[in-house]
Design a protein around this nucleic acid. Sequence first.
DNA 1: TATTTTATTTAGATTTGTCTAAATAATATT
DNA 2: AATATTATTTAGACAAATCTAAATAAAATA
Lengths: 219, 219
Amino acid sequence: MNLTVAEENYIKSIYKLQDGNAVVSTNAIAYELDTKPASVTDMAKKLKEKKLIDYEKYQGISLTPEGRKIALQIVRRHRLWECFLVDKLSFSWDEVHEIAEELEHVRSEKLITRLSNFLGNPTTDPHGDPIPDALGRISKSQPLVSLDKATARRLEVAGVSDQSSSLLEFLNAKGIRLGTQLDIIERYEFDNSVEVKIRNQPAFTLSEQVSKNIMVKSL
Amino acid sequence: MNLTVAEENYIKSIYKLQDGNAVVSTNAIAYELDTKPASVTDMAKKLKEKKLIDYEKYQGISLTPEGRKIALQIVRRHRLWECFLVDKLSFSWDEVHEIAEELEHVRSEKLITRLSNFLGNPTTDPHGDPIPDALGRISKSQPLVSLDKATARRLEVAGVSDQSSSLLEFLNAKGIRLGTQLDIIERYEFDNSVEVKIRNQPAFTLSEQVSKNIMVKSL
DNA sequence: TATTTTATTTAGATTTGTCTAAATAATATT
DNA sequence: AATATTATTTAGACAAATCTAAATAAAATA
């Protein structure tokens, strides 16, 4: 399946807006891509023809499984390039989006495989968003530090990446173990600490150090 | 000056074919870009409009100073990406061209500056071709090791980058000094040594070690 | 020099991705 | 339910980059 840059951008937008299984409106896509609804309708016909979206007149748009697979590849490329720009070229995380927007369209499977390897196969990008693997699987669990209440409120603890006994003891004392459900109350920019709450208990704060090592999945 | 990918490719082809100051033919560009002469004529009108080429009907095409400046930027981007692919992602030098062909069109001054820096500001790419600097200057002199008889036969010694007395002594004994003219007879892949000849003298071989430190310019 | 061959250009068409303006469908409001 | 509003689609146009076929200019050859 060889897509143009424009087609890739539409697929990516639909993926972003779909968020679960919802159907996406023509207008929403037009706004997201800074284009006109009429253009979206035109492109919808093409992408339907290619079996990348489900589309019926006036009924909204959603990705087919094939479309979703491609969307995940694009997201993967985008986020790996963002890692590269920040980790290797010392860009700050807020200036990489535009450049990654261009780099993501460079087509070479081998390039992406090697880039990922070169970066140590990261699972989250500089913004904390998860990076799909080569097969399009998004690691359901991600470090707590990468989330905020805008992206996920209710979470379940899926594991701890640092197995040092001091950390485990600390978590144990707080009542955090595998399967514990957490709510994010607030994230504090200045030291990247996060205030969380376990059902029926008073809220407490976790340092960046700690929340980096708590792997969670959103519910 | 914001150019499309197609325009950049034309500029690059013209630069490549121009080789000095010669005027380039419509047919030659069409062949180089795997397109039709009629398309070249169309594009020639656009590029003339933008003052990047000199063009008169039936009289061939050449870059203006502004066009040459842009060509050098594109060549710079292409060759830096090739360095990245080979040095950092372990591609072999013969598989990087296609990918660099895409990467070179990513537009960000800052990206290229930082990429160059990350790579240690190399002056030649994996094929041994010189990399223009940020101002479009091509280092006229390059290490002898980066050349072979296909790219340059008759050379002039422009300097020695390693000033150790043992190397200077060695070169002196061979009759190599500033301004000496050399011909490349053969390069040997297996140890990257090079056989050279000074006018009227028998040929002799220089190790990679030595030829890395001899800066030459082609005549 | 006249003629043939080759190179280049023009004219007109096509594809992709976009637009505006008008028409139509879906939704919200009275 | 009728009407107004909003969302979406259609129709027709445009710019970029390309093509083919035909016309014309330049160069090579007889």
